[in-house]
Simulated scan of single mutants.
Amino acid sequence: MQNKESDGKQLTAVPRSRRKTALVTGGTKGIGKAIADKLSEAGAQVIITARQPPEEPNSAHQFIEADITQPHQVDQLAHTIHERFGGLDILIDNIGGVTAPRGGFSCLTDQDWEQELQLNLLATIRLDRALLPHMLAKKSGVIIHISSVAGVKPVWNHNLAYAVSKAGLNAYSKALSNELAPQGVRVLTVSPGATNTPLMQGLIQKVAATSGLSAEETFHQMAAQVGGIPMGRMAEPEEVASLVHFLVSPAASYLTGANYLIDGGTVPVV
């Protein structure tokens, strides 16, 4: 059987021994799950990690339980990946979320700030540090940091600490890309806007319960605080996954260091 020429749809050649190996953190639900599914469909061997197993296991994914906000669990995860898979070709740092209370700076304690930074920034830095040596040794690899439009357009009464942590991730990602580009490793950032995930739906329901508005009214009110969404809807996780798939594919081989906003036009900059 002859291999077809790559058109960006496949990540690897057909033989199993030459499949690309990818890790998706937070890969059991939402955007992470959509990315893991997309990469599997494209022919990659996909490892997913999270603190709890997926509710609906996918036989195409290799699940490793880990809390990567804990340094010793990051080390164990990296060791397991090296022993079982020989390292990675693709790393999708997707873990993250809003854990701090709403209401602005006066509502946030040191613990809130530390927790947000651990989840949205430091966990990613630790994992990169643990898994990069293999990529550098073979002078190839792709790292995608999943950030947020909040990193460039924060909403003070909804996501202040989260936005600051994602802004830090954006700066780290850019600096890392400049360091690693001469060594054959590409680093990119993807910043989704409002995306139709269980986490987002839960946030909308929580805000709606305290405001007396419907979920739909609450969403439009929240969107208005960031200047609106010109496309008039949230992204679907699969749309974010399609962008990530392109960025890790050979079709994007000259791309590194950029932050790709996938926000329906929310951020009003040229």
Score class of each variant (00 low, 15 high):
Leu136Pro: 06
Ala163Tyr: 00
Ala215Val: 08
Gly232Glu: 06
Ala36Leu: 09
Ala123Val: 04
Gly193Arg: 02
Glu238Thr: 15
Leu203Glu: 15
Glu5Thr: 11
Glu116Pro: 02
Arg16Asn: 11
Ala78Ile: 11
Arg233Asn: 01
Leu119Gly: 01
Gln115Glu: 13
Val207Tyr: 00
Asn178Ala: 15
Ala34Glu: 06
Val164Ala: 06
Lys29Asn: 15
Met231Ala: 07
Val244Pro: 00
Lys153Leu: 10
His220Trp: 08
Thr21Gly: 02
Gln10Cys: 14
Asn3Ser: 11
Asn120Tyr: 05
Leu203Ser: 11
Phe219Asp: 09
Val152Ile: 15
Lys20Trp: 15
Gly30Asp: 08
Asp110Cys: 08
Ile146Tyr: 08
Val270Tyr: 02
Ala252Phe: 09
Val164Trp: 01
Trp156Asp: 15
Ile68Val: 03
Gln76Glu: 11
Lys38Phe: 13
Leu121Asn: 00
Gln70Arg: 13
Arg16Thr: 05
Leu136Arg: 03
Pro250Thr: 12
Lys206Phe: 03
Ile95Trp: 07
Asn120Lys: 03
Met1Leu: 13
Ala34Lys: 14
Ile146Pro: 02
Leu176Trp: 14
Val269Tyr: 05
Asn159Pro: 05
Pro192Asp: 00
Val164His: 00
Ala50Leu: 05
Ala150Leu: 10
Arg19Met: 04
Leu108His: 06
Leu160Phe: 09
Phe63Gln: 02
Thr12Pro: 07
Asn196Pro: 04
Ser191Glu: 05
Ala223Glu: 06
Thr21Glu: 12
Val155Pro: 15
Phe219Lys: 10
Leu77Ile: 07
Ala137Thr: 13
Gln62Cys: 13
Gln52Leu: 09
Arg84Gln: 15
Ala123Tyr: 04
Asp263Cys: 05
Leu169Ala: 15
Leu119Asp: 07
Ala224Tyr: 06
Lys38Ser: 04
Ala78Glu: 04
Gly265Val: 06
Ala150Tyr: 12
His72Trp: 10
Leu77Asn: 00
Ile35Leu: 08
Pro54Arg: 00
Pro57Phe: 13
Leu117Arg: 04
Val226Ile: 06
Glu56Asp: 12
Leu243Trp: 07
Lys38Ile: 03
Gly26Tyr: 13
Val190Leu: 06
Ala13Tyr: 10
Val164Ser: 05
Phe105Pro: 12
Ala252Met: 02
Ser140Gln: 14
Thr99Asp: 10
Leu91Val: 01
Gln70Tyr: 08
Ala252Asp: 14
Ile48Asp: 13
Leu77Glu: 09
Gly265Met: 11
Gly8Leu: 13
Gly228Ala: 03
Ala42Asn: 07
Ile143Phe: 00
Gly104Pro: 02
His245Leu: 12
Leu243Met: 05
Gln221Leu: 09
Ile229Cys: 00
Leu160Met: 02
Ala13Arg: 04
Gly202Tyr: 06
Ala252Pro: 14
Val46Trp: 01
Ser6Gln: 11
Gln183Ile: 09
Pro133Asn: 08
Ala181His: 03
Thr195Pro: 01
Gly228Asn: 04
Pro237Phe: 07
Ser211Pro: 07
Gly87Ile: 06
Met234Pro: 15
Leu176Gly: 00
Gly193Asp: 14
Ala235His: 15
Lys153Tyr: 14
Ala209Tyr: 07
Asp37Lys: 03
Thr12Cys: 12
Pro268Leu: 02
Gly212Ala: 09
